[in-house]
């Protein structure tokens, strides 16, 4: 019951946090910025509208938003939030989940290619390339976690006897993981410095250009799915940051939400002070995150942790 409640809360609150990013960016630019609830307004507006479909598209185009939304929901169903057990969990769910996110990406890419637009094809190619590299990093993190904790489930990672947090006795290696997971968060959720959600030139986009032709409720589903995905990654990192003793209870929930908000602030700060990479430098950026975690994994062979 409690799990279901936290899941529902997460699905409702996820669009709130990206508003923080916009606020932070506006602060850095010396502007007032849009209201915190801007994303809810956007969603409501999109849901009221109808859609225009390209004559080039087939049923695959309409499946894209639905599948990517469903995969994002799956991720939240399996992820523990603020010391509360997730709705479902089993040994090995991490592998299943990252692969299910893969199928969401698969259909997003196909939907982009379905429009016959050269720009959307370009975005799709970049998405396919970068997310493949990011997947290597994610699995390296799983390897490291298995070494530290011997489990293959989000719940066991963060809520077992021996949870994985930065404050645990052998947590210093997790510094690597926090840094590289943050890099992966930026990559997978198309944030600066990999992708710029606010740019106006289609040639330089990755994710935004892929969904150019979606409109109305379809676009709303995509946006909502993207918020869930971002929420998932941010929650992942906050679990690493929060000490084990704060898990559970109202205080734990407050600490969790606070940390979560801090991560969104960090994203906003990153976006404000860095410029987007040249496209050919992105693989290097992702490889750096991979190398960081691999460092940590190699160090575990020393019996240091």
């Amino acid at each position: 019951m409690e799990s279901m409640l936290s899941f529902l809360l997460a699905t409702l609150a996820a669009p709130l946090f990206p508003g923080i990013i916009l606020k932070v960016k506006a602060f850095f630019a010396g502007k007032k910025g849009p209201p915190l609830l801007i994303k809810y307004y956007t969603l409501a507006k999109l849901l009221r509208k109808g859609s225009v479909y390209s004559t080039s598209t087939s049923f695959v185009f309409k499946m894209g938003p639905t599948v990517s939304f469903a995969t994002a929901l799956m991720a939240l169903l399996f992820f523990p939030l603020a010391g509360v057990k997730p709705v479902f969990f089993f040994h090995g769910d991490v592998i299943v989940l990252f692969y299910i996110m893969g199928i969401g990406r698969f259909f997003t890419i196909l939907a982009a290619l379905d429009t016959a637009s050269p720009f959307e094809g370009m975005g799709a190619a970049r998405e396919a390339f970068f997310s493949t590299l990011a997947e290597a990093t994610v699995f390296m993190v799983l390897i490291l976690f298995y070494r530290m904790n011997g489990s293959l489930s989000f719940t066991d990672y963060f809520q077992s006897q021996n949870p994985i947090t930065l404050m645990s006795p052998n947590g210093s290696l997790l510094l690597f993981v926090v840094v590289s997971m943050f890099m992966i968060l930026l990559t997978e959720n198309s944030r600066v410095p990999v992708d710029d959600p606010a740019t106006h030139l289609e040639l330089t986009m990755i994710h935004e250009v892929m969904i150019l032709d979606h409109s109305g409720p379809d676009l709303a589903l995509i946006e909502l799915g993207a918020f869930y995905k971002l929420f998932f990654y941010a929650a992942f990192i906050s679990h690493l940051l929060i000490p084990a003793k704060f898990a559970g209870g109202a205080a734990g929930g407050a600490v969790f939400v606070g940390t979560l908000a801090m991560i969104y602030v960090a994203i906003g700060v990153t976006e404000s002070i860095t410029a987007r990479f040249k496209m050919n430098l992105v693989p290097k950026y992702i490889l750096t995150s991979f190398a960081l975690v691999t460092f940590a994994a190699i160090l575990t062979t020393m019996g240091l942790v």
Binding site: P169, G171, S172, L173, L175, F176, V179, L281, K284, L287, T288, A291, L292, F295, A296, L304
Partner: peptide, 23 residues
């Protein structure tokens, strides 16, 4: 040792970043 480890990890991090930095 905890803080020492953290510092060492930061050194390793800096080594890695220096290999990857282009500026």
């Amino acid at each position: 040792t905890h803080i020492t480890d953290a510092v060492l990890v930061i050194i390793l991090l800096s080594v890695l970043l220096s290999l990857g930095s282009n500026r």
